[in-house]
Design a protein around this nucleic acid. Structure first.
Lengths: 310, 310
DNA sequence: ATTACCGTGCAGAATAAATGCATGATTGAC
DNA sequence: GTCAATCATGCATTTATTCTGCACGGTAAT
């Protein structure tokens, strides 16, 4: 309902280049360029200046973008209220989430919504948390499932978003099936302190969670290998290369020679999984329903995992 | 910046029929029909229902329209603030006003703006006050000059508009040149109580002003003739058909056998001339400048008239 | 029953917008 | 200093959207 060109400007304000804006919005770079020029013409404002080989927002441009936050929020709020008042749901819903969330939370959600609202067209995009926020701004998606990261620049008080905690996903430890502790059901980080550890690359989202967990018990782990996908982690462990942490939401799906142990003791690391929406839209019936479904599904998965793997 | 289809819906909410909406917005009826249908499709809301041979807003529709008032106001406010922050003015300005305002206030304003802002395109629409408000909602004009009418449904607190008093235009009395009082400079309503009066049709904007003035002095005038345009009033007076009231802003331009007398005494009727804009836009530099110019011009005309006709 | 009014559907026209490629300008690397 | 990479933009073309004008069907008043 808000002019698409203003949305484009907002995306540009976040990512700073026409090319990136085009990628995020789904337009071509020329279209973005034309939109921004047209926006300035229509409003009679100079919003951008050339800066080297790129563009930069003018003071007016920054002012407009900042001021548009409450405008967008108000529209979302109005739409949500009207939807609720009329007991209706929108025609389209865009969902975004990082890999395992997309697979284990969003896919079931999409399936459920599809059956309860046959006329609703749902679109799921797999994307990293930071990109999810960008996609929310670009209005490509309406609901994002992300891992809460204190390092992120999106605070709980960001005027553009609202966030709700979906669940705290506990990290389990996975060890080779022939490990001395393999017959146990639980373990502590202290017991595994001297093991070779498999983790993600330093600086990644989970790495900080990993180090924080060990700092809490005063142990410095030996990092032997790095992996990005959980599937790779599991394979490394199965090959006897070391031990690792695995979110309970992530399935082992019967991997050879790998057992999952619950972590006990002082350090019980969890990753907090959060749903984020554009501010104002949280009251929308469809969003509310989606949040409920997500939460139910997530809890079901967590308890089911306990019976499967542990 | 707010979707044109929502604007169209707002206009429909005011006038109630597709045809009238088309006339006000400048679209064809088919276009309005298509826009409203499209709006419902995009939002996934049912906003309208068939009602006899016409359309009627649903509860959701009324809710959305009412809720859109602050949305529009916020956009106008943001635009005005950004304009001010960037020291820029918009590219287009639409002005609306009733006949004599259009001729004596808006035309000079347009001329002044044209010279001070060569790139600005100004458009002037002559329209009755009620229609001016509609045109403001339809975003066909940005500034309206109207006669304040307590009977109007537009209060000072309407969430859609903001109003500023431009001037209080005193009503003078016009009498034939061969009238016994013609050599005077002032007169009172009491002195003219027994004269045949020329007024507007009952129910018109000025008629209530007319009766209120006589009620204030406890006299019931004899209404002899009715006229719509001031020029007709003047002609009637010149033909000796009676006496009448004429706003000081309206010129005699040397009519034969008519003299203008200032009204003194207890009843000093004035018509309050007010500028109205969409709420939020009052802070816009161009609106502010226009209001200043209007006020200066109005005062200049009032004082000049004293020297010409009185 | 007839007439006037109102909204809508459709074919075609007009307008607006997006794409893809080529270009110019700038930065950083070698 | 040259070369490659990055970025934005202009233009011709295509594509999508939107508007118009007219005809039609339903509804209310005379």
């Amino acid at each position: 309902m808000i002019d698409a060109r203003l949305i484009t400007l907002r995306v540009f304000a976040r990512c700073g280049t026409v090319g990136a804006t085009a990628e995020l919005t789904g337009y071509s770079p020329s279209a973005v360029s034309a939109q921004l020029r047209e926006l300035q013409r229509v409003l009679g404002m100079q919003l951008l200046t050339k800066d080297g080989r790129g563009l930069r927002l003018t003071a007016t441009g920054r002012f407009l973008v900042a001021g548009s936050d409450p405008l967008i929020a108000q529209w979302e709020s109005l739409r949500a209220a009207a939807m609720e008042a009329g007991d209706q749901v929108q025609a389209h819903l865009g969902l975004g989430g990082f890999s395992s969330a997309a697979a284990h939370l969003l896919a079931p959600l999409a399936a459920t919504l599809r059956s309860t609202h046959p006329s609703l067209e749902v679109q799921v995009l797999e994307a990293e948390p930071a990109r999810c926020f960008d996609l929310l701004i670009a209005e490509r998606i309406d609901l994002a499932v992300i891992v809460a990261m204190q390092s992120d620049s999106y605070g709980e008080d960001d005027p553009r978003f609202e966030q709700r905690v979906l669940l705290d996903d506990p990290l389990d430890v996975i060890i080779p099936g022939d490990h001395p502790l393999a017959s146990r059901e639980t373990a502590t980080l202290e017991e595994l302190a001297s093991e070779p550890w498999i983790t993600e690359a330093a600086g990644s989202a989970y790495h900080s969670l990993f180090t924080a967990a060990f700092t809490a018990v005063g142990v410095t782990p030996r990092i032997a290998h790095e992996a990005v996908e959980w599937e790779t982690h599991i394979a490394f462990v199965g090959a006897g290369l070391g031990v690792g942490l695995l979110p309970r939401l992530a399935p082992l799906h019967g991997a050879e020679n790998v057992v999952r142990l619950r972590l006990t003791g002082r350090a019980k690391p969890t990753r907090r999984i959060v749903a984020a929406v554009r501010r104002g839209s949280i009251a929308s019936p469809l969003i509310q329903e989606s949040l409920r479904i997500l939460q139910v599904n997530a809890n079901r998965i967590l308890t089911a995992r306990l019976e499967e793997d542990l």
